[in-house]
Amino acid sequence: MPAAVAAAIAPYDRNSDIEPYQGEWDHWHLGGPGKEFTVLPGHEHDPRLIREPLTSRGEVRDWVPSLCDGGPRELLDFAAMRLHAATEAERRWRERDDFAAASLKFDLPAFYRMEAKQAVPTEHLLTLDGVWTDGSVPSRPGYGNEYLSFANAYLDSLAPDILVIRLRIHC
């Protein structure tokens, strides 16, 4: 699988001389501690799940069955990831100093929705048709403030058998 990933992202390698130049990364690693996907309950031991055994620094990763670096879309529980993000945002807000929290004019429901919106996609998305998008290029999908909405809708719409993989890239 690493060879397939390398081939898919090769057009965006900053070190390549592929024309036209579209450099987005200079090295990558499968997975990223703290950015794992939640596995759909009942599928924690499915052999199609991807769990990179080492960090990018070569340290052994301790895995819990409910998390993975990727797998078929049908095994990834995006709804649970979004709910967890919103719940954690609410917990963090409640732990704040009451005075500070009361003095802020803040739209808490919007804050919780934004946290949920950021739970599944990362800053960059490579689509099945080879388009790299991150919200910064007007000619690419999900430009500007629409990136998270685009990325979530795109990921949610993938066929059940499509592999979704989390990469850690350096740019």
Rank of each mutant, 00 (worst) to 15 (best):
G135L: 01
T127R: 07
W132Y: 13
P138Y: 14
F150R: 11
Y154W: 06
L128G: 14
G142Y: 06
K117Y: 06
N152F: 04
L128S: 06
G144F: 05
D156N: 11
Y143C: 07
L126Q: 04
V131D: 08
P141S: 06
L155Y: 03
S149Y: 06
L125N: 13
T127Y: 02
F150Q: 06
V137H: 12
Y147G: 04
A116T: 08
P121C: 07
S149D: 14
H124T: 08
T133H: 03
L126K: 02
D129H: 06
T133N: 01
Y147T: 07
S139G: 11
Y143D: 09
P121S: 09
G144S: 11
S149L: 09
K117M: 15
A116G: 07
L148I: 00
G142V: 03
P141I: 04
W132A: 08
H124L: 12
D156L: 02
L126E: 02
H124V: 11
P138G: 11
F150W: 14
D129Q: 03
Y143K: 13
D129S: 10
W132M: 13
Y154K: 02
L155E: 05
F150H: 11
W132D: 09
Y143N: 13
V137F: 11
R140P: 01
L125F: 13
E123R: 13
L148S: 01
F150A: 12
L128V: 09
Y147V: 08
R140I: 02
K117A: 14
L148Q: 05
A153P: 03
L128C: 12
D134S: 14
D156Y: 04
D134I: 08
A151H: 09
F150G: 08
W132V: 04
N145P: 04
A119F: 07
L125Q: 13
P138D: 12
G135Y: 00
T127I: 09
T127P: 01
T127E: 01
R140W: 05
E123H: 12
L126N: 01
V120W: 00
V131E: 11
V131N: 10
V131A: 09
L125K: 13
Q118M: 15
A116I: 05
D134K: 05
A116L: 08
A153G: 05
P141L: 09
S149T: 12
E123M: 03
G142R: 12
S136K: 15
Q118C: 13
L126R: 05
T122E: 15
A119M: 02
T133Q: 07
T127Q: 02
D156V: 03
L125M: 12
V137Y: 10
T133A: 01
G135F: 01
G130E: 04
T122V: 12
D129R: 03
E146S: 10
S136P: 01
A151V: 11
T133D: 01
T133V: 02
F150K: 10
G130V: 10
T127W: 04
D129L: 00
L128F: 03
G130Q: 11
D134T: 10
N152H: 07
G135E: 00
P121Q: 04
T133L: 03
D156C: 06
V137M: 10
T133R: 06
D134M: 11
F150T: 10
V120Y: 00
Y154N: 00
